[in-house]
């Protein structure tokens, strides 16, 4: 099976297979700005504040205005507001349309609601322990499109275990049967890579790799979004088509195929 993919597609695919993540510039800067600005506007509205002049600075410094106790209410208000916007998911997909098409396919299922993570500096109440989503009911055919709305560097970002170390950790996982996820984290901590993803870029990664976050030790707040994509006709796991995923790029020939009916009325 050679010669069917373009050199660019082969190069990107090879990178993804080797590393199982990609950090690339967003493909639609206007869509990103719209998402970030609406996020800031919704956050300001929830806090009873005027529209910020500098949305990115406002998001970075949200910790000056809200503490951990009110953070989840703010997060929910913002993400529910965004998911209610008719343009939101289309814009989110546009951020990585070509990369998704190359890495995943051109007939895609997209998570129905995009997720939002807000992590204040020093806050340990909204951490995501080390995990593989595949272990939590996701299909190994899914990828996550992770989008920072601010510069996400070092502990303000997320960490991931590279494929070779991940394979070793999975092979030894049964040794943790009576232990905790923190024990697992400690055993792989030296191999974890913190992914620096500046604003204007996205991270596309396989959730077959262990990943998570820790306390944000940077001075500003992390704002990041996540959304899963998969090939429409690849196997689903616990996150099912209809309730969790929905088709977004159904192609014409597939539509014809789905509608096709053989002539009937014949009997042996």
């Amino acid at each position: 099976m050679t010669g069917f993919l373009s050199p660019d597609e082969i190069a990107l695919g090879d990178r993804f297979v080797a590393d199982q993540w990609l950090i690339l510039p967003v493909e639609d800067a206007d869509a990103l700005a719209r998402i970030r600005d609406r996020t800031a506007a919704l956050a300001a509205g929830h806090l009873g504040m005027p529209l910020p002049n500098d949305p990115q600075h406002f998001l970075d410094r949200i910790g000056d205005r809200v503490g951990p106790a009110r953070l989840n209410d703010l997060r929910l208000a913002v993400i529910q507001g965004l998911n209610a916007e008719s343009w939101f998911r289309t814009s989110y997909h546009a951020l990585a349309r070509r990369a998704l098409s190359t890495v995943v396919g051109n007939e895609l299922a997209m998570q129905r609601t995009v997720g939002l993570s807000v992590q204040l500096p020093g806050d340990d109440s909204s951490l995501l322990p080390l995990h593989c989503d595949v272990w939590d009911g996701d299909s190994p055919y899914e990828v996550v499109l992770w989008l920072p709305l601010v510069d996400c560097l070092r502990t303000k970002s997320m960490c991931i275990l590279p494929p070779a170390a991940n394979a070793r950790a999975c092979a030894g996982l049964k040794g943790f049967a009576d232990r905790t996820v923190d024990d697992l984290f400690a055993s792989v901590e030296q191999d974890l890579v913190w992914l620096d993803v500046p604003y204007g870029h996205f991270l596309l990664f396989s959730q077959n790799l262990l990943h998570g976050n820790r306390v944000n030790l940077e001075p500003a707040t992390r704002w990041s979004m996540n959304c899963r994509f998969k090939s429409l006709f690849s196997p689903y796991a616990d996150k099912r088509l209809g309730e969790f995923f929905e088709p977004i790029t159904l192609r014409a020939a597939t539509r014809l195929g789905l509608d096709f009916r053989f002539p009937d009325g014949f009997h042996d």
Partner: peptide, 21 residues
């Protein structure tokens, strides 16, 4: 408080162990 999700592997209770901490 937001739920922890147990891993899918049969017999695995690592996340429950974590919650117990």
């Amino acid at each position: 408080l937001l739920s922890a999700t147990e891993y899918a592997m049969p017999g695995c209770h690592m996340m429950l162990n974590q919650v117990l901490t």
